[in-house]
Design a protein around this nucleic acid. Structure first.
Lengths: 412, 412
DNA sequence: CTCTATTTGTTCAGCGATTGAATTATTTGC
DNA sequence: GCAAATAATTCAATCGCTGAACAAATAGAG
């Protein structure tokens, strides 16, 4: 049933204002032009009187600011446009990946206001040391943010692996992490975050999930429902349904890399056989293209593949076509199951999408029952390499936009 | 982001009462024992004063009634228990399937209060005639319901095929239906439904979706997230996520029958190759068991298979094992993707589950990365053959429970 | 240049719904 | 029979939305 879900708990007097604060702020956030109070009233169904009162709260809390009057034709008192404040709360995005550390700061409007990437092979580094370096970068990010009038209200860390509810990294195979208690390790450093009710100080999540969120909130915003596939050494997917990330019962959704595409095919390190990862993972493509593993650091493998394909190298083109076909088989299954109309190729796949998209689309066309009535779009990610860090930071500020009352209670 | 979603529109004074009516009624519906007003107050976080006022509205609207005081030990004034009324609004469930028509009436509490099944081969019958028979059965159901004090407030029709938003049956291959405008055909008959704000008079939906909803609201209620697989001639799945049916972008989710399990295997009538349906569909199992298609009407095929397997017939056991393995490959993919912890085998699979579950579980164990940490349950459906009709009727009354204000506005 | 139409935004009395404390109701146990 | 305990109701106070009137600011007509 797709009913409008009622809030879980009791609805009291104050909830009313909380909900309308979120409603109006959300409208301001998603509008394509700075809306006036009158625009907001007609868009939300509230009276202008209520919108004025709500906006007054938002202005007082410095979540929105008035912009120059938008040029408008016709008579009447000119409107004052409302935009998300470029100062105030901001989100801290952190990412630990196989070959880099990334930190970024995203403001309310979703703009990336700070970004640092530190390239290094993290596999030989102990988790505590990797996190210590990240905290150092985050400290510098916080100072830079403060100079811009931004306050960090929460952090999200992207990790290429399975994370449980408590933030414990159960397994990050390509990083060599196992049962790493990230929150406990980070708690040993001085806090960088100003706590706000309703915003967790630290969220640890799968890199593919956060990259999908980044895509959802990118400019222009992605569709409400799509599948975002991060093709790295492993293959992870973030599933966005109706504008929300679907995490699964335990938060371990999106393991598309282990969808069986050749059930009696190559054995996989997961214990299964014929998993997608064995046919469309980075190592599989590199091997199929005839490139020796040794001469290629992980972070240049896709770039080298793209170069070769661009130059018309037959082995590389065949390898990419085969990988795209395997990917297409898996994607066709997902589309049949979930009836999605958009598939985004991210991570290492983004740069390879000119060669991957055609075979993926071919498999979808052949295997998806409903493709005849409704076309499926397959496109590369709009965000760059550190999409997960941006998505992580964005997920923090989205909480403020979704529940502004917490911030307002703090800021008075 | 798993935020509590705010209602889409403006939140006004009246919404407050609407939301709390739904909150309290929902609590009454899901409680295992009739709760008192005081119980509801502590459970919801509302004050007893508010709960009393809300309950008064619900009693006046005959959505709940007071039950005998629940036996309780200790001092104090005895509580008056509150239960969903066994009179008042009810849902009409309709089902057109290959070999039967079914009609049922479900009351607020989810009890099936009326049920009629008419067995017949519907394939040679024109859609309009099939629907006319169904309407005749529904008329009798309404009279029976009225005698029990029940008012039909909405109907849902289950069809084994693809249905679009407007209720047009795009394609029901096993029934031979194509582009059947069900709402228009039903509009030619006198209405059976008393319109209530917020409850659509007629919803047409896929049989697998509605069967999954039936399982969700069965006694005892199913888990909040699970996959329900209806194994008939085709194989459809209903995906329940966080207590809500996931329908996909266009309402065509759950086409699990066309998940590729042997990408270069048998051609499928969908145009793809190696679809699950070719290995675990009813016809495939029957053929693999060496049973001639002609001697078996569709509705007895699974019964006959179960008989043979029970008797130890080697061909039947092998056919079921192979089908279960194919099903397990597909299910393992779904579990990897969505991280579900429960899979329900319904429809024709329910009776065959003693032989299907073991190979399905084996494939899950071998292929699901996270199975080691979190076991996946595979079990047969608790509802019987006409699960879709019950789920359809249940989906109607769930709307009343979710939005009682509409009914109360009507009933004064 | 002035007047009118038009649109924006604010002010304020009224009202519905929740709250919290006090009150009433009803039973158990001493 | 009385005190303790639990259930449910009553009522003034309060919070936040509404609707209408009003003030502000501009374009266009004459």
């Amino acid at each position: 049933m797709s009913l409008t879900h009622a809030p879980a708990g009791a609805v009291r007097q104050g909830s009313l204002r909380e909900l309308n604060l979120a409603l109006v702020l959300g409208r301001i956030a998603t509008a394509d032009r700075p809306p006036s109070r009158a625009d907001l009233a007609t868009a939300t169904g509230l009276t202008r009187a209520t919108v004025s009162a709500v906006v007054e709260d938002l202005l007082a809390g410095r979540l929105v600011s008035e912009s120059d009057p938008a040029p408008r034709s016709g008579a009447g008192r000119p409107a004052r446009g409302l935009v998300l404040a470029d100062q105030g709360p901001a989100g801290l995005g952190l990412e630990v990946n196989v070959d880099y550390l990334a930190v970024c700061v995203v403001d309310l409007a979703g703009q990336v206001r700070h970004r640092t990437v530190h390239r290094a092979d993290l596999r030989p580094v102990a988790p505590a040391d990797a996190l210590a370096r990240l905290v150092e970068m985050a400290g510098a990010a916080r100072e830079d943010a403060a100079r811009r009038g931004l306050t960090l209200v929460g952090a999200a860390l992207a990790v290429p692996g399975l994370v449980d509810d408590a933030g414990l990294v159960r397994l990050a195979p390509n990083l060599g992490w196992r049962d790493v208690p990230v929150p406990a390790l980070l708690a040993e450093h001085p806090p960088l975050i100003e706590q706000v009710p309703g915003v967790p100080a630290l969220v640890v999540d799968n890199e593919a999930n956060l990259a999908a969120l980044g895509e959802l909130h990118s400019q222009p915003p992605g569709p409400a429902s799509f599948l975002h596939i991060s093709g790295e050494v492993g293959i992870g997917a973030g599933i966005v349904l109706d504008g929300a990330l679907f995490r699964g019962v335990r938060g371990w959704s999106g393991e598309i890399g282990h969808l069986p595409v050749h059930p009696e095919g190559r054995p996989c390190r997961c214990g299964g056989q014929g998993c997608l990862e064995q046919y469309a993972g980075q190592e599989a493509i590199v091997a199929a293209a005839g490139l020796a593993r040794a001469e290629l650091p992980a972070d240049t493998a896709t770039a080298r593949l793209a170069e070769l394909a661009e130059a018309g190298d037959a082995d590389a083109l065949r390898a990419l076509h085969d990988a795209g076909t395997a990917l297409g088989v898996a994607v066709a299954g997902v589309v049949n199951l979930l009836d999605l109309d958009t598939v985004v190729l991210g991570g290492g796949y983004a740069a390879l999408s000119p060669w991957l998209c055609p075979p993926v689309l071919a498999e979808i066309g052949a295997r998806v029952l409903t493709a005849a009535w409704s076309p499926v779009t397959v496109r590369p990610s709009t965000l760059g390499a550190e999409a997960a860090a941006v998505g992580a930071a964005g997920s923090v500020v989205r909480r403020i936009v979704g529940q502004p009352a917490g911030w307002l209670a703090r800021a008075g």
